[in-house]
Write a protein that binds this DNA or RNA. Structure first.
Length: 250
DNA sequence: AAGTCTGTCAACCGCCGGCTG
DNA sequence: TCAGCCGGCGGTTGACAGACT
């Protein structure tokens, strides 16, 4: 028997997700949940198949995703669990709250396998990751604004707004943003599920690879943050009611 | 400075198993 | 019991960016 394709491929988009698609997906799930992945894209107005939506949510947009480099402890845990469980990435991920099976699988193939073989040949030493891409090169910056503080479309927020263009949120520049970790307990709280094992966000080991956002009731992460993305998340914030705090971490 | 190599990771593909009618 | 649907999982790919020559 030939199985029908998971979805009708005709007219469905593939490839990287755009911020607009992310916004639609997050907003929809925030409002309606995700009882039926196959029906979700149609209901949400997305030209994606259900699987793609599910994957995007699970691996990237889910609020309780822990972003950032893996700590040594996490890596050791993965190695131990892999010895016990083999390539059962989802089972391993279940033991590492906030980490996805996809992420763990990637780390295993790109980093840990190598690390293990190095251990076997020459004990320890050189983490010769001269080529290791580290997307987080510096301590992230933080925006923390209440809805009252956030600029309206034509208002500028003095402490965080670049004044070269006065079109509102487009103007937020990372270099002007408060460089502080103090706001992060708010992110922890909003992340909700199982925070107990989340390493302190002000830990040196916690280096987010992509910006994180915590908007009261809506939380997310975004790669390649730029001003447009910031606007995207702010609009999401407003759509969600615009109450509470809008926080962005770069 | 330009071209090439290499590592990383988001996303896709196809299979599997559970559930339901 | 069986066929079909659906979500979940693991393997794989390809684009991209940084490192190297």
């Amino acid at each position: 028997m030939v199985r029908a394709p998971c979805c009708d491929k005709m007219g469905l988009k593939k490839g990287p997700w755009t911020p607009e698609e992310d916004q639609i997906l997050v907003s929809f799930i925030h409002k309606h949940g995700h009882d039926n992945w196959r029906a979700l894209p149609k209901q949400a107005g997305l030209l994606r198949c259900g699987k793609s939506c599910r994957l995007r949510w699970i691996n990237y947009l889910r609020p309780d995703i822990k972003r950032g480099n893996f700590t040594l402890e996490e890596e050791d845990t993965i190695i131990q669990l892999h010895e016990m469980l083999g390539n059962r990435w989802s089972a391993i991920a279940a033991k590492l709250p906030g980490r996805t099976d996809n992420e763990i699988k990637n780390v295993w193939h790109t980093h840990l396998k190598k690390r293990l073989s190095q251990h076997q040949t020459k004990p320890d030493t050189n983490k010769k990751n001269s080529k290791t891409k580290n997307k987080t090169k510096s301590k992230p910056s933080v925006v923390s604004l209440s809805s009252d503080e956030f600029p309206s479309s034509s208002t500028e927020v003095s402490s965080i707004t670049d004044t070269t263009d006065h079109s509102g949120v487009d103007n937020i520049k990372a270099e002007n943003i408060v460089d502080s970790w103090e706001c992060f307990p708010e992110i922890d709280e909003s992340f909700g599920s199982d925070n107990s094992s989340t390493p302190p966000l002000n830990s040196d080991k916690y280096q987010p690879q992509v910006p994180l956002f915590s908007i009261d009731g809506v939380t997310g992460a975004h790669q390649n943050i730029d001003d447009d993305s910031m606007e995207f998340w702010y609009e999401l914030f407003i759509n969600a009611g615009g109450e509470g705090n809008f926080i962005a971490q770069f």
